[in-house]
Design a protein around this nucleic acid. Structure first.
Length: 206
DNA sequence: CGGCCGATTATCT
DNA sequence: GATAATCGGCCGG
């Protein structure tokens, strides 16, 4: 067993979410289960920034659900939606300023069999980690992880540096699933991803 | 492939 | 009572 990688420093998350979101591409999520550890690289992110961002859950101020977003940076904001899905975000900005990065897709680099076992009906499919609810299911993330510190390498869930992604391998565009938001928020280019065709070359450098 | 649609429930109005 | 930062199955081309 290799040593656990050092975590990302909390200062990594003290910036606006739109600044942190692209930097998270290529970073790894380290997840420890009873059966062992799994590691994945982050390949797609979205930024949600402040009460003025009318696509952000914080747009109506502090509520029971979004409370973690108003907490200190470097913690998880996990919420439930569509009656069945859990979403993983990482809180950014100073405490009491609501901002977070949604993790939308990941790529397995270790312990893939542990992840597949949590998606029993879909393990044979190719696109099995490219969606915010798919990856939380595979990583076994739910309300238990809401508010968890992801800068603690002793924790069962934390973030660590991964690979550096070349700028030209990064694609960015508007966020998805927020048709309810008015302009300019609906078109704000706050979604970033590693271009799928560049992913294998990038991952080879792990 | 791509588009459409139903599932399913915590949280907010 | 309505809505939701989605997913997967089903259909047609």
């Amino acid at each position: 067993m290799p040593p656990r990688p050092a975590p990302l420093p909390r200062s990594f998350f003290e910036s606006p979410a739109w600044q942190t979101a692209p930097k998270l591409l290529g970073c790894q999520i380290v997840r420890t289960f009873k059966e062992g550890a799994a590691r994945v690289l982050i390949t797609e992110t979205e930024a949600y920034q402040g009460t003025e961002d009318l696509a952000c859950h914080a747009r109506s101020g502090l509520t029971k659900r979004n409370a973690a977003m108003f907490g200190p940076p470097g913690h998880a904001y996990v919420y439930f939606t569509y009656g069945m899905h859990w979403m993983l975000n990482i809180v950014c900005e100073a405490e009491s300023y609501p901002a977070a990065v949604l993790i939308r897709a990941v790529h397995p680099i270790a312990g893939a069999e542990l992840l597949e076992s949590r998606r029993p009906n879909l393990a044979y499919r190719s696109n099995w980690l490219n969606g915010p609810a798919k990856l939380t299911q595979a990583l076994g993330i739910d309300r238990e992880e809401n508010g968890a510190d992801v800068c603690d390498c002793q924790a069962a869930l934390y973030l660590a540096p991964g690979i550096s992604v070349p700028l030209k391998a990064i694609q960015n565009g508007p966020r998805v699933g927020i048709a309810y938001a008015p302009e300019p928020w609906k078109s704000m280019p706050w979604r970033w991803r590693i271009r799928p065709q560049e992913l294998s070359a990038a991952v080879a450098k792990v």
